[in-house]
Design a protein around this nucleic acid. Structure first.
Lengths: 347, 347
DNA sequence: ATGAAAGCGCTAACAA
DNA sequence: TTGTTAGCGCTTTCAT
């Protein structure tokens, strides 16, 4: 039922070596026999075994990717960036979802350690990530690139990320320019680096504008979903009726906050301004589109993958690979949720 | 650098066979040596090679999944269903995105054919799918389950899908009950079975209500995205000012149509009612939430995977596996986009 | 209870 | 230009 190289060799009265080379268009094989072999293989429906080949060559042409939440359109774009770059270079990608669960992440990395992939792009579960696992990866010489920097290990590992602090500064300043003063922040309790940086940027922008930081306007959340934004948002809005704007950790949460506002009879942006991060595609939806910090999602994925592939090839050719830290620029996308000074667009 | 079974065997003065069995807790191995081996392996940081094992056992414990558009939250849920069920049974999953591109699908299936996976869950590129590829899969004895039925091959292959026609009937009837008469339909030009069934249901519901089918109210689209819905929706709404409702092939398109309406100064649902399919999570967003046919996304994925795993195990134990066709029930979720008879909710 | 050895399907170095 | 052969790392009889 399953045809192997050996069978093709037998049928053709050639050796497996020759057939193997012929099938891979090795120039050492005579044109006529190459054609003959190709045809025969075709006729026999021969499909080479990736397993056999991988074991022999010590490479799989597969990249692993761990994502914290594939449900978030942000990561879906990152994935596309990864996959496109991978395919372009002859790799496939295995995607695994950690769901912000450390156990799951550890388990997934363990599986990847078993030599199924040539390298990994890792979106670590914030700072909970299993450092032991990363060390293990490094020790085993499996190339990987992170999609986040790890606190205290900025110099140790390669990563590609966006400038979170800068993004937060720009967004907060924009809110201030729009005339808002009591600006709240909804960030994570996990103390991840990403959140930490954004929070820092938020505070810095406030300080620069001479607005006193008010801890009562800050709320933490447990997940990064729309429904969590709704829940936490309601809490914050009810506790602080004087609030007039919110910076949310990401668009999903921001959208949730907007929902919260509506549910409390508040209008956006008239009664409450809201800003987010990511610029996922639903953020542009009417009637109140979300002003947000656009992150280069696709590029995050593609550049991380590019870097990874380079590392893989460096390893193969024993060329030394230096660690790379790439920080991409965020960009403010002004829509309607933060208010605006231009005339009301015609509808 | 990389520790192999053989090295562990050497260090322990045992044979590779014994070590192999010990590590897998084979009862034939004496407890004391089992412990000894486990400890030694741990100490040496031994990680078994999945490749070696797979080649020997002829199984990878990996499932392949092809998805037409990972950007669509619908598929993101399906993926989670697949992955959860896979993990629960000791499998990992390789996800590939076909982007509704036949070439890409063929290439992806070819790669999967090379024995990298134990089985496949395939969301075929509608009816363009490469039947030759499916036949090949079948011939090679690689188990697979489809997430769609294929025209003319309903009996040939296993699939898990939702009852599209029924869903369309329910939705259209709901629109009619809400008092709408000039109900348009936005479906695909590709003549996929899914679309075909929904279109059929739509027409059937109209007929049953004594509403004459009006081809001028039907538009086809090229992709399944929000922006496509916006584009096509604008066209339809401008061409037919008399239209008062639209059934869209999916929520993304429906959301796009709503955007189109807003951009033309139409209110939803007062001036135009809109209904969709899928019930993706953004459909519940205010201020105008989308009435839609909820499809059991997660279950679609998990049940397909369950079925697949059963087929894989049937194959291993040479137990015959019957073909399974599973059709899941759709459910109408009434929100605001189609109008409603209840009082306006308090805001 | 453990060891020896064949084999899974392929590649690559070396011979011929 | 092609054949031979030794692995790649593991599992699994069959002996012992």
């Amino acid at each position: 039922m399953k045809i192997t190289l050996e069978q093709v060799a037998k049928k053709s009265n050639l050796s497996t070596g020759t057939v193997s080379m012929a099938l891979r268009n090795d120039p050492r094989i005579k044109e006529s026999t190459r054609k003959y072999v190709l045809e025969l293989a075709q006729r026999l429906n021969y499909i080479p075994s990736a397993l056999g080949r991988s074991l022999a060559t010590q490479k799989t042409q597969i990249l692993g990717l761990t994502i914290t939440d594939i449900t978030n359109p942000f990561f879906t774009e990152v994935f596309k960036g990864v996959e496109d770059m991978a395919v372009k270079n002859g790799y496939s990608v295995i995607l695994s979802n950690t769901e912000y669960d450390l156990k799951r992440e550890t388990e997934i990395l363990r599986i990847f350690l078993e030599g199924r992939v040539d390298g990994l792009v890792i979106d670590p579960v914030e700072n909970n990530t299993d450092f032991a696992m990363l060390k293990q990866l490094k020790r085993m010489g499996i190339p990987f690139v992170l999609l986040r920097k790890l606190k205290g290990l900025e110099k140790e590992y390669d990563y590609v990320m966006a400038d979170d602090k800068k993004g937060a500064i720009i967004l907060t300043q924009h809110l201030i320019n729009m005339g808002h003063r009591r600006i709240g922040y909804i960030g994570s309790t996990q103390c991840g680096v990403t959140d930490h940086d954004r929070f820092l940027g938020y505070k810095q922008a406030l300080a620069k504008a001479g607005i006193e930081f008010d801890a009562g306007l800050v709320t933490s959340h447990d997940s990064f979903s729309l429904s969590e934004g709704l829940k936490v948002g309601r809490g914050l809005l009810q506790a602080r009726k004087d609030i007039d704007a919110v910076v949310a950790f990401n668009d999903l949460l921001a959208l949730g906050v907007m929902e919260a506002a509506y549910s409390l009879g508040l209008r956006v942006p008239e009664d409450l301004a809201v800003g987010g991060f990511d610029d996922i595609y639903i953020s542009g939806l009417s009637p109140v589109s979300l002003t947000t910090i656009a992150l280069p999602k696709y590029e995050l994925g593609s550049r991380a993958t590019e870097l990874l592939i380079d590392k893989i090839e460096a390893k193969r050719s024993k060329r030394p690979a230096k660690t790379n830290q790439i920080v991409l620029e965020p960009k403010l996308v002004i829509r309607r949720s933060c208010g605006h000074k231009e005339k009301e667009e015609q509808r």
